[in-house]
Design a protein around this nucleic acid. Structure first.
Ligand code: FES
Ligand code: FES
Lengths: 151, 151
DNA sequence: AGAAAAAAAGAGTCTTTTATCTTTATTTAA
DNA sequence: TTAAATAAAGATAAAAGACTCTTTTTTTCT
């Protein structure tokens, strides 16, 4: 559905939100190591998010990436749009050139509702919601609980 | 969700099922042109399906691909398994190494149900169901209605 | 001012997916 | 028994996605 890259983006933002108590700014290396994401690749992704204003960054010593006023209220759909674009919600399941409810493919009816549901969920969920889940111990950013228990 | 290749496979099989009245066998060129799928690529896909026994083929003049006794009762999940494998239903939405409900990611709860729904739909839907839809004029294999109206 | 830290930018590589082209094998029919 | 039709197989290529490495720019601290 969404790309691996987009997953990295969301996890990166949530990480920054979770860790803002410890220190406001976090270097790319720290984030990448904690989340087990290739450093330079994550760097590029976070830069995209900075350009979109979803997070912020400062260069130089003691610089790093950090959340801003907007971050926690950012709906996930905005992150998806920034990384993957909204085109992913407009593709036909059977790979025809485009999805159309006027000229539907034989799987359209079955999956169009499901796709809208996913879209709506991405619209409604905000970064803050994910952060809350993790703070409550209901979910985890990394597969290894190392990080989860460390919080 | 499912790959473009898998969509080609499903459309190919349904095409053969629809057209079996006209003539039982259909050459790869005819199928590819009608469905607007790259000829040789579709050839490989259909060959995979033949190996799985989902459809059949005969070489030589007047040969081609054709449906067999099993075809119409084949559940879509079998096609998906043949082409994409079932791994696509076991991936974490956020791109973590694996999906786990014991150690869920913050999107797991939101989307796990949706994913199961998709899986169940693929289990329940058979090729014959898609054929029926098209025969009833409720859906179309190609975007251009040329083919749909031609039936 | 100069050194060091860190993000930003750019170029390049690897992998997977998607697609094309070419050759071979099989079958039919004249 | 030869020619033609056609699927099968194999090799290659193009495109996109994922990832790496190197250099540049900005900032801070001494
Ligand atoms: S037309 Fe295929 S999913 Fe809408
Ligand atoms: S753990 Fe992420 S989707 Fe299940």
């Amino acid at each position: 559905m969404i790309s691996k890259t987009c997953g990295y983006a969301i996890r990166g933002i949530v990480f920054l939100s979770l860790e803002q108590n410890k220190s406001t700014k976090h270097g790319i290396l720290e984030i990448a190591e904690d989340l087990q994401i290739p450093q330079h690749f994550l760097g590029k992704i976070l830069q995209d998010l900075v350009r979109r204003g979803i997070i912020s960054s400062i260069k130089g010593p003691h610089g790093g990436f950090f959340v801003n006023a907007k971050t926690k209220d950012t709906p996930l759909i905005e992150v998806v749009e920034a990384i993957d674009g909204l085109g992913i919600f407009k593709k036909c399941f059977l790979g025809r050139e485009e999805c159309s409810s006027i000229n539907p493919c034989p799987l359209h009816d079955e999956f169009d509702g499901c796709r809208s549901a996913i879209f709506k969920t991405f619209e409604n969920l905000k970064i803050a919601d994910l952060v809350t889940k993790i703070e409550n111990g209901d979910s985890y950013l990394s597969l290894s609980n190392d990080f989860a228990t460390e919080i």
